[in-house]
């Protein structure tokens, strides 16, 4: 080790000036690549592959399944992708980075964008595989995508809660079981408030509830990420 040179080798050495909007944008831009590298994306990819594998057999074998069974398979894909998303905020560098000036939610947002891109690709692949099977064109894909988005946001919320609770920044051991447990709770909801319904009379009402859940989860997630750390 050698001594430190004189301060202010450059005008910005201390990062002392309160950054303006342009400076903040540059910070975000500079963060993109290292954040991508720091994000644990392999669990999401692995879970996405498993999800795609779940919907592949009916498509490959040409089995004609009732719409509700396709929907169940796609919901399992959602659960798989959701499990992958619970790893998004795992950050072993948390102890080192938690007192730095750039807000934690900014890094989380970048990770969320990455998870959305990869998770969205996995979901799109599952939908394409499903659509390639017989008698699947009339499935309610937009509504199912709304469900998938909600599950992904819930998974991200679980990841955020796990990240906050873990001193080492590894929240997935808490978040992944939490997501599965949440899905089990959803599966057991009684009819008046059921979310996992089949195609039929209750479908639209259930999807109104999905929309509320999505909006609520987004708000709670924003609250968790921006709360005092």
């Amino acid at each position: 080790m050698s001594g430190l040179p004189a301060v202010g080798a450059s005008g910005q050495a201390a990062g002392r000036l309160v950054p303006g909007r342009g400076e903040r944008l540059r910070t975000v831009a500079a963060l993109v690549w290292p954040t991508l590298r720091a994000t644990r994306i392999s669990p999401l990819l692995a879970a996405g592959v498993v999800g795609a594998a779940i919907v592949t057999p009916p498509a490959v074998t040409g089995s004609i399944l009732p719409p509700d069974e396709h929907i169940t398979l796609l919901r399992l894909v959602m659960a798989c992708v959701g499990l992958g998303v619970t790893f998004t905020l795992d950050d072993p560098a948390k102890p080192t980075a938690e007192t730095l000036p750039v807000a934690a939610w900014l890094g989380a947002l970048l990770r969320a964008v990455l998870a959305a891109v990869v998770g969205g690709a996995c979901w799109a692949a599952a939908l394409l595989v499903t659509r390639s099977g017989p008698e699947t064109t009339s499935l309610p894909y937009p509504d199912l995508t709304r469900e998938a988005a909600t599950v992904a946001v819930v998974a991200f919320l679980a990841s955020a809660v796990g990240w906050r609770r873990s001193p080492r920044g590894i929240g997935s051991p808490l978040a992944a079981p939490m997501l599965l447990l949440g899905m089990a709770v959803v599966a057991l909801l009684p009819a008046p408030v059921a979310l996992l319904v089949g195609t039929g009379d209750g479908w639209d009402a259930a999807h109104d509830r999905w929309t509320f859940l999505l909006a609520g989860t987004l708000l709670v997630t924003a609250g968790v990420l921006t709360a005092r750390r």
Partner: peptide, 22 residues
Amino acid sequence: GFHPSFTAFEFVDYVAILKELT
């Protein structure tokens, strides 16, 4: 804590970005 897959330079660079050295 660290990101084990980063190089030493990349890690400090990452922290520097988080310190708004853009």
